[in-house]
Each structure stands twice: as structure tokens, then as C-alpha cells.
């Protein structure tokens, strides 16, 4: 499971670049293009999600325990979603756009992004959970992790 993603700054609408929650996350790794890093370890973890054709930042899961009813994690199994484990929370599947993803310190390239699950808590605040699945052989060798993010139209 990825503990962070990065989105190329040029993939974000210009108007968002000056938002404090975006500007403080801008990181330059080299080259001409900067990226915006969204890490689960952040004091306020958020994820970019595409909602109704618009890019929005929403809370990443419920790791900080802000909601009393949502699970205190940032990820959910694809199988759990498919088996209806989230039906009670009226979830919606969303796209988490990403240029890179981070797993155990390893940044790897992602073509489109990761599948996410968007739910609303008892206070009406939206949270996005990253959907994960069992690791492919390559992913397990690369990261030594048994879970990998469910990538959009991509197999690694």
C-alpha cells in the first residue's frame, strides 16, 4: 500500500497552486517540473481526487481519528469494496490522480493514478481511502510489500 503520492504541479489547476495546503506540499526533485507531495504521515493527510470532473483535496482516510464511525486507516482492500463491505457508508469510487507513488521509501512512476473510495463521515466531511490489492510479483520484489495500490489501467 502506498504511503504517499505525488502529482506533477502542471497537472493541478493554476488556481490551486497558491492554496496553502498545496503550496506547502510543493517539492522540487530536479528537472523543470515540480510536484506536489501528499503523504499519509502528514499532520493533515489529504488526497487529490477527481470529483465530477474537478480536482479536489479531501481528507485521506481516518488515520487521525477525526471520525468516530469510519475505520482508522487510509486504505481499503479492493475485495472488501467488491464484497459490499462499505455499502453502509454510501461510498463512491473516485480517481486519485498521481504521477508518482511512494512505498517503503521507494518512489515509482504511476501513469494515471490510483483507484480510491470516497465516503462521508457522520459530520458530513468527505474522506478518500486508497484502494489496494495483493502485490504483483514485481511490486513485491521491488517494495517487499504484500499490498499494492490498485492502479488505474496499469499493471506493474
Amino acid at each position: 500500500m502506498a504511503s504517499g503520492i505525488a502529482l506533477a504541479l502542471s497537472d493541478m489547476p493554476l488556481a490551486m497552486h497558491c492554496w496553502p495546503e498545496v503550496s506547502r506540499r510543493i517539492y522540487r526533485r530536479g528537472g523543470t517540473e515540480a510536484e506536489v507531495r501528499f503523504l499519509y504521515d502528514d499532520r493533515e493527510p489529504v488526497l487529490p481526487v477527481m470529483k465530477d470532473g474537478k480536482l479536489e483535496l479531501v481528507r485521506w482516510g481516518n488515520g487521525r481519528g477525526r471520525s468516530r464511525c469510519l475505520p482508522r486507516t487510509g486504505w481499503t482492500w479492493k475485495a472488501t469494496v467488491e464484497q459490499g463491505g462499505w455499502v453502509g457508508a454510501a461510498p463512491g469510487v473516485v480517481r486519485i490522480p498521481a504521477t508518482l507513488a511512494l512505498e517503503k521509501g521507494i518512489w515509482f512512476r504511476v501513469r494515471q493514478g490510483v483507484h480510491g473510495l470516497l465516503v462521508t463521515d457522520e459530520q458530513g466531511v468527505e474522506s478518500a481511502y486508497m484502494i489496494c490489492e495483493p502485490s504483483s510479483h514485481y511490486y513485491r520484489v521491488m517494495t517487499r510489500s504484500d499490498r499494492m495500490p490498485a492502479l488505474i489501467e496499469e499493471k506493474i
Binding site: 530536479g30 528537472g31 523543470t32 517540473e33 510479483h137 514485481y138 511490486y139 520484489v141
Partner: peptide, 18 residues
């Protein structure tokens, strides 16, 4: 095919990711 990688430290992985 991926200009985002230009100027950045990049490694290509072989041996099944090892």
C-alpha cells in the same frame, strides 16, 4: 515518452524489480 522524468534522478529496474 515521459518528459516528467527529465532532469530527475531515475533508475530503471530489472531482475523483476530487484
Amino acid at each position: 515518452r515521459d518528459p516528467f522524468l527529465k532532469g530527475k534522478p531515475v533508475g530503471v529496474l530489472g531482475n523483476q524489480g530487484a
